[in-house]
Design a protein around this nucleic acid. Structure first.
Length: 803
RNA sequence: GCCCAAGUGGCGGAAUUGGUAGACGCACAGGACUUAAAAUCCUGCGCCCCUUAAAGGCGUGCCGGUUCGAUUCCGGCCUUGGGCACCA
């Protein structure tokens, strides 16, 4: 072999193996047990692939290749989530059609994805904007509509009066329109809603089944937000109306001294007296212009009195009815009974506006001066017949009492709200419904799906707030599938979530024209075994996908209720303490790094930077270390191959220890320490090689272990070792604990828990021998001291407690 | 305000059930090889005391506790990052 051949030429190697894998795929044996390893598919933005994508995709690819070596058939697909606002806005700004923009971006992404050398099965590729795909996105919606899960409702949306366009929350953030800076208003528009709340309980309970990070499960549970309490009716004085509130603390009802409605509450206009009307209307309008984020961040409580009164149903007290933005329209009933004695926010409000504060719960049964809301346990006081009852029992007792009186009931409440499922935008799946004067809303017959998105010249939002599709008469006007009469198509489109809520099902039967997925493919390949992606999707995407899966289970399309058995969320990559991004100018392009160091080096470095689940900082010079390691491994193999060195116990010990360490760390997904483990063991093997040479078994094990992490160099070295098949045809190496044990062990000698000496002992030395040797090692220090106690930890240490 | 993470050398980080704190790597310094450079190899590298060494002391955000022994467990606090719908 010439000197030239011995140099690690990553460019040549990576080019060669990419081609080889294309020609001879490594993951083809469908008879093996399946392992479905899924990435969250990217949104193909014009900026191209960034380091964050790399991190996620490298982690999943390492896992996929590891499972392949462990004898699985691995489903590892990739696709593009291409509908939605960013693509549409990009298209508008750059004056290209979104279809073309998405096509270009996807092509660029795909090219960059190739540089990761992930073993994606590109035969399974899908794009959510492909009519053959969104046919089934629409089909699912039709099934939901037929089951009564879709309904129309007027919903307040962010509206920019200057741009005349509906704004997404993100576009209206900070109280100004992202495009023109004008303050957005609220505008009521007809929307399609999905009844995800019907699934609230199942979505909550089934979290227990999942092998997901606790953190994510907690976030979902909190989002669903189940709480127990009561609904209570309050009569409005001198009127027929009543105000219904939800409270988790019916035990504090006697302490309710005023009421507050959300500014958006339906009764606000009715209950406002003429002398209060000007103030109330101004307050309601101001609240409407404020974004939710601002409304939440507000420090001081504000509010206005409506001029009307209600009556506390138990105490009979007269209660002022106020309006304040700290009450949210869409939680509970949008109205609350205020118990300033025992709720911090109510206390603050009462103090500011001089409203009465009454103690009704006391820790010791006595009455006290309340300087702040008392939210702890206690017994009921000032509460009529309930006095003396523990507050916990009072919740039930008061609720039952109200139920008997017919003015209340026990109630379970969820924070989860129904899902606003329509968008007044061009770039989304058309909602496959038809409005007929005679028949009402009728779904498009399944045989007519997909309802394709018509090609238009102007895809700018319209001034009425309707989708641009509303302007295309030829498309809008159609005939009713039920009665054959003239009818109009629904012009709203679906949100970006629609495709991503079920795409993982489609990969395994991507070309199926006859159905969403065949029963055979579904049973064989689903559900997803491992899902890898960013923590930013902890709630919305993952909750929607779970909801869709449960619905598809209910209508018999799939036979499982949870789509993702196991989940891993990787952390972000920062640079200079900030999230990497083009706009901040602190981005590092993966392309630059791979051209300088190669794909294998970048894969290893991304893993080596830190624990995969935590945020890490990119350091420009850090990659040198893993690059040197690859060169070292290269030299170790190429300089020792074919020397026919006989295996010795030293080789065996080192080999088994290496297999054990790498496997254990891999199983824990401690990928940063897998890489450091490779460095340690390669250093050690290099030392052994210099002394005694190195045997073929050890080199082979090293190469196979390395394969999931640095697949190109592993294949090349495998070939250099004389193999004609792929390294991925091998099995993951096995270790034998007996063979990895060393002859001597280091025993730590401590005095009062402080390290004093290290002694070397035979691995099989007795406890007595070890203690004797330990005592001898610290003999001079023990002079004049009494050993009170001897602590002996086998294989580890001896600690003398002395005085 | 609420919820969730995380705080260890100059830097990124390591440390199965509590058992040698700082593995591995980066940076830095010194040396070998070289005409020179690159590459490679060797050595050193938490802080204090000390000319050096030995010995010793301190040290995992802060304060306390449990323990023979605490980065690890418990209580209280501080800081940073992420999320949020003031959740009644």
């Amino acid at each position: 072999m010439s000197t030239q051949d011995r140099k690690y030429n990553f460019r040549q190697i990576e080019q060669k193996w990419r081609k080889n894998w294309e020609e001879r795929p490594i993951n083809t044996d469908h008879t093996r047990p399946k392992f479905y390893c899924l990435d969250m598919f990217p949104y193909p933005s014009g900026d191209g692939l960034h380091m964050g994508h790399w991190r996620s995709y490298v982690i999943s690819d390492v896992l996929a290749r590891y499972k392949l070596l462990q004898g699985h058939y691995v489903i590892h697909p990739m696709g593009f989530d291409a509908f939605g606002l960013p693509a549409e806005n990009f298209a508008i700004q750059n004056n290209v059609h979104p279809e073309k923009a998405v096509k270009d971006s996807s092509a660029k992404f795909k090219k960059q994805l190739m540089d990761i050398c992930a073993m994606y099965d590109w035969d399974l590729e899908l794009t959510t904007t492909d009519p053959a795909f969104y046919k089934w996105t629409q089909w699912i919606f039709v099934q939901m509509f037929k089951k009564g899960l879709a309904y129309e409702k007027e919903m307040p949306l962010n509206w920019c009066p200057a741009c005349k366009v509906v704004l997404a929350n993100e576009e209206a953030a900070g109280g100004e329109c992202e495009r023109c800076g004008a303050p957005p208003e609220k505008k009521n528009l007809r929307q399609w809603m999905l009844k995800i709340t019907e699934y609230a309980e199942r979505l909550l309970v089934d979290l227990d089944k999942l092998n997901w990070p606790d953190k994510v499960k907690k976030m979902q549970a909190d989002w669903i937000g189940k709480s127990y309490g009561a609904k209570i009716d309050f009569a409005v004085n001198g009127r027929d109306e009543k105000i219904t509130v939800f409270t988790t603390r019916p035990d504090t009802l006697y302490g309710a001294t005023f009421m507050v409605l959300a500014p958006e509450h339906a009764l606000v206009a009715t209950l406002t007296t003429d002398d209060r009307r000007a103030d109330v209307e101004k307050y309601v309008q101001d609240a409407g212009t404020m974004s939710n984020v601002d409304r939440m961040a507000k420090k001081d409580k504000t509010g206005v009195f409506t001029g009307s009164y209600a009556t506390n149903p138990l105490s009979g007290e007269k209660l002022e009815i106020w309006i304040s933005d700290y009450v949210l329209a869409d939680y509970g009933t949008g109205a609350i009974m205020c118990v300033p004695g025992h709720d911090e926010r109510d206390f603050e409000f009462a103090t500011k506006f001089g409203l009465p504060i009454l103690q009704v719960i006391s820790p010791d049964g006595e009455l006290h001066q309340l300087d702040e809301a008392y939210t702890g346990d206690g017994v009921m006081v000032n509460s009529g017949q309930f006095n003396g009852l523990p507050a916990e029992d009072g919740k039930e007792a008061v609720a039952n009492h109200l139920a008997n009186l017919g003015i209340g009931e026990k109630n379970t409440n969820y924070k989860l709200r129904d899902w606003v499922f329509s968008r007044q935008r061009y770039w989304g799946e058309p909602i496959p419904l038809i409005h007929c004067q005679k028949c009402g809303v009728v779904p498009v017959p399944e045989s007519d799906l997909p309802v394709t998105l018509p090609h238009v010249d102007s895809y700018q939002p319209t001034e009425t707030g309707e989708s641009p599709l509303a302007l295309i008469d030829a498309w809008v006007n159609t005939i009713c599938p039920t009665c054959g009469g003239a009818a109009k198509r629904e012009t709203n489109t679906m949100p970006q979530w629609a495709g991503s809520s079920w795409y993982f099902l489609r990969y395994v039967d991507v070309n199926n024209d006859a159905g969403l997925i065949s029963k055979e493919a579904m049973e064989k390949f689903l559900p997803v075994d491992y899902y890898v992606g960013g923590i930013e999707h902890a709630v919305l995407h993952l909750l929607y996908a779970r909801f869709y899966t449960k619905f598809l289970y209910d209508i018999g399309v799939v036979n499982f209720e949870e789509p993702f058995t196991q989940l891993f969320n990787q952390g972000m990559i920062n640079r200079f303490g900030m999230k990497m991004s083009k706009s901040k100018g602190n981005g590092v392009s993966p392309d630059e790094v791979t051209s300088k160091y190669g794909c294998d080096a970048l894969r290893l470095y991304i893993l080596f930077m830190g624990p995969p689940e935590l945020d890490v900082d990119w350091n420009d010079s850090g990659i040198e270390g893993v690059f040197r390691f690859l060169n070292k491994a290269w030299r170790l193999v190429t300089e020792n191959v074919g020397k026919a060195v006989k295996s010795t116990p030293t080789h065996e010990q080192a080999r088994h220890k290496m297999i054990h360490d790498i496997t254990a760390r891999m199983e824990n997904l401690s990928l940063n320490t897998v890489v450091s483990g490779f460095m340690e063991h390669t250093n050690k093997l290099s030392d052994i090689a210099r002394q005694d040479g190195i045997d073929a078994d050890t080199l082979r094990s090293l190469i196979v272990l390395l394969a999931p992490f640095a697949p190109n160099i592993a294949e090349e070295l495998w070939e250099i070792c004389g193999h004609t098949t792929s390294v991925f045809d091998e099995g993951w190496p096995q270790y034998d604990k007996a063979k990895m044990a060393e002859d001597t062990i280091t025993i730590v000698v401590q005095m009062n828990g402080k390290l004093r000496e290290n002694i070397q002992m035979a691995a099989d030395a007795s406890k007595e021998d070890i203690i004797a040797a330990a005592k001898a090692s610290v003999a001079t220090r023990l002079k004049g001291l009494i050993i009170v106690k001897e602590i002996f930890v086998p294989g580890k240490l001896v600690n003398f407690v002395v005085k």
